[in-house]
Simulated assay, not measured.
Amino acid sequence: MFFNAFSNPKLGKWIIPGTGVIWFLGCFLLLRRYDVEIEHALIDAFIFSLVFLGGIFVLDRVFSLFAPKGKNLWLLFAVPLILSWIGVMAHRYVLVWGFDEEEYLDFLTKSFYLRWTILAMAEQLISVLALVVSRLEVQEEVRKREAQMLQLSKEAELAQLRQQLQPHFLFNSLNSINALVVSQPKKAREMVLQLSEFLRGTIRKDAQKWISLEEELNYLKMYLDIERVRFGHRLEVDFKVAEEYYQIKLPQLLIQPLVENAIKHGLYGVTGEVKIEISGRKEGSHFILEVLNPFDPESSAVEGTGFGLSSVERRLFLLFGRTDLLECEAEDHIFKVRLKIPQFL
């Protein structure tokens, strides 16, 4: 309905009656100002208020079926003008029929055009105001729908990244298992069991729910157990995260791609034992996590899709709308990835 633009869940039902009461009091005081007798002023103001509310009701019916737009906006002024004319005529007819005092009837005739002007202006103002509020509400609804669509789009992309991460890791693990099946079948079976345990713990998790750092590190250690089957004593991981940070919340599987990237570029490009360091600390409203791995700048680049770091960077942007939460730098044969996770508590 057109005039439902004024509605409010708590106060809406009082707006029109309240407007009628204010209109009645205004008319009564104005009539008394012109020395109209109290009895006449009360009846006159009451009937004029009914005319006013009746005009609002008719406007509501008309504009709820047809909201003027563009070239039809002139109806916002024409319809109230016609309705107010009809209303003032009806008001005058009722009072002429009910009263026979010559002085009051003369006042009624002389004030006819003034009454019409006041009523027409009031109804036109209400019509315009209702249209403006109605359109603002429509715009707000459109904005909310766009925000919901954007949120759904973000959630869909996050889910897609989450789904891509598992096949990406699974593909790498199956390649490793395939390489071990002939040469080291015992290690291949061990890796299959560990992979099954890891996937059982991660696939069932709600992708939208954040987990504690302790839980994330437990999944990470399961992943590293799988990788150690391939690399044996060559892979060493040093965790430097104090237990006081274990209850910090973060998106699931946000660290694992960073460690996977460190293993790929550390162990494939370096001979001998490799030590990867994972450290964490709190800085202001951020939890800082760093992953360091050695690398040989002269070795040939490791082939890959580059999915790991790019997926983390994209997830961070979708979650926080920022592009400065993941930093990478290489210095003195050490490659460092720095992850900043905003903390809102």
Rank of each mutant, 00 (worst) to 15 (best):
K110G: 02
F52T: 02
F77Q: 03
A78Q: 07
L105Q: 04
L95K: 07
Y34F: 14
R61V: 14
G54F: 05
V51N: 00
Y34V: 09
G70T: 14
R61A: 15
F66D: 14
R33M: 11
F107G: 12
R92H: 12
G54Q: 06
M89Q: 10
L95A: 09
F77R: 03
L59I: 14
F112M: 14
F63Q: 03
F112V: 14
L31K: 02
W74G: 13
P80T: 10
F46C: 06
G70W: 13
F66P: 02
F52H: 01
R32V: 02
V88G: 02
L105S: 07
V36M: 03
G20K: 01
Y104C: 04
F63C: 08
I38K: 05
V96S: 09
W74M: 12
I56Q: 01
L108W: 04
L31C: 03
R33D: 12
Y34D: 10
G54D: 05
L59E: 13
L105C: 08
F46L: 15
V94E: 00
V21F: 13
W97I: 09
L95C: 06
F28C: 00
F63L: 15
F77I: 11
I86W: 07
L25K: 06
F112N: 13
V94S: 03
I47R: 00
L53G: 03
V62F: 15
A45P: 12
W116P: 01
G70N: 15
R32C: 08
W74V: 13
I22W: 05
F99R: 04
Y113V: 08
L30Q: 03
W97A: 12
R33W: 14
